[in-house]
Design a protein around this nucleic acid. Structure first.
Lengths: 192, 192, 192, 192
DNA sequence: TTCTAATCGAGACGGTACGTCAGGTCTTGTT
DNA sequence: AACAAGACCTGACGTACCGTCTCGATTAGAA
């Protein structure tokens, strides 16, 4: 979406964006993203379908923004480095277990496979902000954090997709695994 | 599918199954799972659509079988325990990077989120055989292997979905991470 | 539409065509053709929209068939030449005054202006059969009959479009005018 | 349209009306009335869509005015009564053969069927002026002229709609037919 | 050999969502 | 006020795919 509004013409309704994104998140909390129709989103947001297509060129773009909004930012944490990082990663893992975040992310991962632009958008809006937030506060390398994020998100999503759910213990395990790699470095091979 | 062929009536063509599964894998190698239509599969396999639906009740079920067939079995390995296990997990990670396996799996993960039966089928045909193969030959607990598989598959898939590709080094990292957990136990440090 | 049904595959439902054409005529009796939606026709005929589009490539083609069916054939007439011809033309004029025939014809005339194929279809299905029926029974030239038909239909339609209705006397006048030309020849100029 | 300009506020641009009507006529010369969008007219007239809707309440009203402007008035003719009347009717027939006049009229006829106000407007702006011009100069009854006009316009339009074009001879025939009725009276022979 | 029952090919069918388009209304800032 | 620009709502469009169905034509084993 354009960052600068054009100077002329009727300005865009300011509340439309939030209404549509919230409607999307709400509907996606009940059923999977593929089951949520643009018409249903429009109806719930009390907005015309054409208004949605004027702002987002596809369902996927809309989903990225809805995900970014629903996901939110990790809570601030003043504790010691390792502890705080672990908390942040754990928060992310917890968010992905929620139905709305999960449904959006899974649906997008499916479509991202066939759309490079969507991938870039997904990185820019979802992963990068989280990674940056961590890097700004503690001394960690961005590329390593990216991998940690992918491991955590991927593992949790895949586990739920395969088993319908994931236990608290398994989430802990995955987070531990990833954070351990983050600090010790990921190349701790089993062989001597 | 029926295990026993009925005694009367025209017998089913024996070569149909392989032709359809191969056609599915071939088409899914080029485009994403959602882009591959049943009609296209039927046309490529030179088979009627009805013939497909007589054997598989839905596109998803067909995809599971196609995935199982395309994925194949891990190569036999006579080496020492830890080394062989790592090789097996590494082989799995390598297979998931291939477009056909990846597209099928991602598409199925999407649908599995809203279909418990599909989840069960997916576990039974894809994850369990692999887990069993490992458990039979080496002393590892099934539930731990399951988690390792989910971590590896999920991480690799998610990485590719986010970045379009995954480097050899990152694959190594993920496999190391997972195998390390497999032997040390995943509960490295739940408490701070 | 294809005259010969293909030998293979599920045969087309025989009653669909009549149901759709009747539904079209019925709906077009109430409102103008442009106001009648394909969805409404499908709903009234208890048929899927796709089924309609399988048989008719556009709303206009459907309308031509609906018009041909609704219009019907001129009643048989054993009387003397001139009298019978006048009766036939009068019958045509009377039919065009009916809302369903009128709405269909006006809507088609509008679209025919931008579609040569539709024009040909319109001639073949509507005007030619009527002209032929007259030529077969009495000694009249086809091209002259065509012109007479165009004069009668055009005049009645235009009159109704301009005034909302046309009186019985005016219909008589138009028919007389046209039939007079038919027998005396149209080139009876006012000048000597 | 308002007859008196209000005293306060910015005065209306005087050249807008002509620009819009000309743009309409020009666009309608190429494609059919239904294919010409208000946005296209606005763009061609270098005028905002709101400016158009401030003057005309609908596309149809605009089209009526555009038609009246494009059609123009019959040329003055000082010859003897019958000859001049025939020339005037012939001029009208000739004008209707032009693409712009024809497209506008056909499109309006379609819409007039469902809109009584449009019918009245069409009569007042198109048919009545022509009829009056004839009545003022020669001794003919208005209602008869109206019928003649409807016959000529209807016949020519319908002929073109059915055949794509109309030959000069056929136009002559139609005009002769109509004018003949005008002078002899239309009730040549209602009874057999 | 004839009968029987299931398979196969071909394609019609119902249903659901898609993304687009045009008419007409409304809301800004500018003249 | 009028105007330019463009957002907005409404309603219909024609398309695509899924999964079901109905035919005629096969193709075996059973009677």
């Amino acid at each position: 979406m354009a960052d600068v509004a054009s100077r002329t013409g009727r300005p865009r309704r300011a509340d439309v964006e939030a209404a549509v994104l919230d409607a999307t998140a709400a509907l996606v909390g009940d059923r999977a993203y593929a089951q949520v129709t643009i018409d249903a989103i429009a109806a719930r947001a009390v907005v015309a379908k054409t208004t949605i297509y004027r702002r987002w060129s596809s369902k996927a773009e809309l989903a990225v923004d809805a995900l970014a909004r629903t996901l939110g930012d990790p809570p601030v944490d003043d504790r010691d480095g390792a502890t705080a990082v672990r908390a942040a990663v754990g928060w992310l893992a917890g968010r992905v277990r929620e139905p709305d975040v999960r449904h959006l992310l899974v649906g997008l991962v499916d479509e991202a496979g066939r759309d490079p632009e969507l991938r870039a958008r997904l990185r820019a809006r979802i992963r990068d902000p989280f990674t940056q937030a961590l890097c700004e506060r503690w001394e960690v390398e961005a590329s390593v954090v990216d991998l940690v994020v992918d491991v955590v998100l991927g593992a949790v999503l895949h586990r739920i997709a395969m088993s319908g759910d994931i236990g608290d213990g398994d989430v802990e395990s995955v987070v531990d695994l990833a954070v351990h790699a983050l600090f010790r470095g990921p190349t701790v091979s089993v062989e001597p």
